[in-house]
Design a protein around this nucleic acid. Structure first.
Lengths: 194, 194
DNA sequence: TGAGTTATTGACTGTTCGGTCAACAAACAT
DNA sequence: ATGTTTGTTGACCGAACAGTCAATAACTCA
C-alpha cells in the first residue's frame, strides 16, 4: 500500500540508546543522530517525532532491558546475597571496553533530564522503584524470620541507592578497584543479621 | 592604577554556582550568565576567562564547601553513627524549598561533564575520595577493635556510594519518605558489628 | 497503468550558542 | 593635565542548533 522503510526501526532505537547513554541528551545533536543512524533528518522526524520522543523511546527501551532484567535477576536469585552478587557481576560485565565510563543511562537521565522533563522523571522513579521492590521480595524470601517490614524496605532502598552511586562513580571515572569495594560492601550488607 | 571592578568577585561565583547546580553546565547559556550576574559578556570573559573556567571555579568552590565541610563533620563526630546522622541531617536541610530537586553539584558534574572533561573528572574523584577517607578515619576511631582495614575501606566507600545515590535520587524527584529511608539505612549500616 | 499512500532526500529556516572586539570610562601616578 | 592601566559596554561573528518542507521515490491495489 505504501513505500516500505529501508531501515530497521529497532536497530535505530538500539543505536540511539547507545549514543544517548554515552554522551547524554544534550551531547547528541540531530546531525549526530543522522550520522549514527545513516538516516536523513526527514526520515527521523517522520518515524520518531522529534529528538525528545526518540530519547524517551531509547530511555524506556534501556530501562526495560536493564532494570527489568535486573529486577528479574534479583527476584530469581536463591538469596539476596546471590542477587546482589549477580547484579554487580552483570554491572561489571557492562563496564568493560569502551563502555567503562558510560555509567547507566537511567541514572544519567536522572541528573541531566529528569529535572526538566516530568515524563523522564516518572520513568526514572518507576524503574528505581522496580529495583527496590525486587530487593524487598528477595529480602523477604531470603530471611523470612528477619526484622520488621520497615527495616526490609530500608535495606532494599539502601541497595538501590548504592547501585545508583556505583553507576555515577563509574561514569566519573573512579577506579575499578574502588568500584569493586563498593560492590563487595553491598554484598556484605545483605549478610547482616539483626 | 586602574579602574576598579564594580562587582564582587565571590558574589558572582556564588550566584553562578547556584545556577550551574540547578540547571547544569549545558543548561546555562552565556546570556543566562549575563542576566544572573548583571554583568556584560565582556566583563565576564575579562574576569573569568570562558564559560568552562567559570564552571570549574564554581565546582571547586562548591566541592570545597560541601565536601570539605562534610569530611570535617564526619571526622569531628564522636562516632561514625553520629557522623552519618549529621551528614544526612545537613543534606536534608539543603533539600528544602526550591533546592529540593537540585541534588549535588559534584554528583551532577560526574554525570554531565566528567566524561568529557578530565579536570572535572579529577575534581569529582578528589572530593569523593576525601569523603571516603573521612569515613575511614571515623570508622577506625569509632570501632578500633573492629575488623580488618580492607573491610573498613569497603564500608567507607559504601557510605560514599550511598551518599552519591541519595543525591541523584533527590534530583530525580524521588519522594522525601524514600530519601529518609535511604538515610536511615545508611545510619544502620554503621551500627553493624562483625 | 495509474491512483493512493507513505518513505526519502537534502536544502532551508530562524534561533541560540560561545566567544570577540573596538570604543569608551574610571581609576592612579606623575 | 596627561599617560597608563584595567574594567565596561554592547554590537557583532561564524558555527551549531532543532525543526520544516516541497520534491521525489517506492511500494500496493484496483
Amino acid at each position: 500500500m505504501a513505500r516500505p522503510r529501508k531501515y530497521d526501526h529497532d536497530e535505530v532505537v538500539e543505536k540511539m540508546t547507545l549514543a544517548f547513554w554515552e554522551r547524554g541528551y544534550n551531547g547528541i545533536s540531530m546531525d549526530d543522530i543522522g550520522r549514527i543512524t545513516q538516516l536523513n533528518r526527514g526520515s527521523i522526524y517522520n518515524a520518531f517525532g522529534d529528538k525528545r520522543a526518540l530519547y524517551l523511546l531509547a530511555l524506556e527501551t534501556y530501562a526495560q532491558q536493564s532494570y527489568g532484567g535486573a529486577a528479574q535477576l534479583v527476584q530469581d536469585a536463591p538469596s539476596t546475597e546471590m542477587a546482589v552478587r549477580s547484579l554487580y557481576q552483570a554491572a561489571f560485565k557492562g563496564l568493560s571496553g569502551e563502555q567503562t565510563r558510560w555509567g547507566c543511562l537511567l541514572c544519567n537521565a536522572a541528573v541531566e533530564v529528569a529535572p526538566v522533563d516530568q515524563e523522564v522523571s516518572d520513568t526514572v522513579k518507576k524503574y528505581l522503584g522496580l529495583l527496590s521492590r525486587a530487593f524487598v521480595t528477595s529480602l523477604k524470601v531470603s530471611s523470612p524470620e528477619a526484622s520488621d517490614a520497615s527495616r526490609v524496605k530500608n535495606v532494599a532502598e539502601q541497595l538501590t541507592a548504592s547501585y545508583v552511586g556505583f553507576n555515577i562513580m563509574a561514569r566519573a571515572g573512579v577506579s575499578t578497584a574502588c568500584l569493586q569495594r563498593v560492590s563487595e560492601s553491598a554484598i556484605d550488607m545483605t549478610l547482616v543479621k539483626q
